[in-house]
Design a binder for these strands. Structure first.
Length: 215
DNA sequence: CGTCTGATTGTCT
DNA sequence: GACAATCAGACGG
């Protein structure tokens, strides 16, 4: 695909914006999955109350955010979901990938999603509306949905170097100009005071593949 | 559209 | 023991 990759020497906020338009690639036994980043959030470091490194905490969970820029940080949330981040230059900082536009092996992504549903939501009735969305924009339009779709798990991907891994890497997509980028508050941040108000969520305005965050 | 709720478990804010 | 960077369905307007 396009030019090599993102420059990981830039700071967290710039990285969050620069990752928009880049293509995340994931090699699995069944094939290579690809999706373009359309939504990110910056977690800028230990001074950021919403960040898992807040207060300088350096625990087993968030270790990846203290590793080399470009290290994958995957953590479990709400018991049943995972989220995927890439560490940035600053100690304890990273960019949460919140949504992808599926590009390659989309059917395999859908199979991952429905397999997960079978396991964790066996009793749920699946509406026709949801089925239809799974066919188009709702395959990877959320931080945990994209992990399921792309087979990004803590056990396989946490602490992988995205600049050197054969399991996960970035390819150049298209250049997203500042004018195309919308900003908002980060999603799901409740007890972080002023840090919950900052506009550290970035997404491609025109993309139908961004998450359904209401805000 | 909105607000609410159940599902599920690793982590320690 | 309480909470959490989520998700999808249910229900009310």
């Amino acid at each position: 695909m396009g030019p090599p990759s993102v420059d990981f020497s830039m700071d967290c906020v710039d990285l969050a914006k620069k990752l928009l338009g880049q293509v995340v690639c994931r090699r699995t036994q069944q094939g290579i999955l690809k999706g373009m980043v359309v939504e990110t959030e910056a977690y800028v470091g230990p001074h950021d109350k919403a960040c898992h490194s807040y207060g300088g905490r350096h625990t087993a969970r968030n270790e990846a955010m203290y590793m080399k820029p470009g290290t994958c940080y995957v953590y479990t949330i709400y018991g049943m979901y995972q989220c995927f981040n890439i560490s940035s230059r600053e100690d304890g900082a990273g960019v949460l990938i919140r949504a992808l536009e599926p590009l390659q092996n989309i059917d395999l992504m859908r199979r991952h999603r429905s397999g997960y549903r079978d396991r964790y939501r066996r009793n749920a009735k699946i509406s026709a509306k949801a089925e239809q969305k799974m066919r188009d924009t709702a395959v990877a339009n959320g931080p945990s949905k994209l992990c399921i779709a792309m087979a990004i798990t803590k056990s396989e991907i946490n602490k992988e170097d995205i600049l050197a891994s054969s399991k996960i890497w970035l390819e150049g997509g298209r250049d997203v100009g500042e004018a195309e980028i919308a900003k908002s508050k980060r999603v799901g941040i409740n007890n972080a005071g002023i840090w919950g108000e900052k506009l550290l969520r970035f997404y491609i305005k025109s993309s139908p593949f961004v998450s359904n965050a209401r805000r």
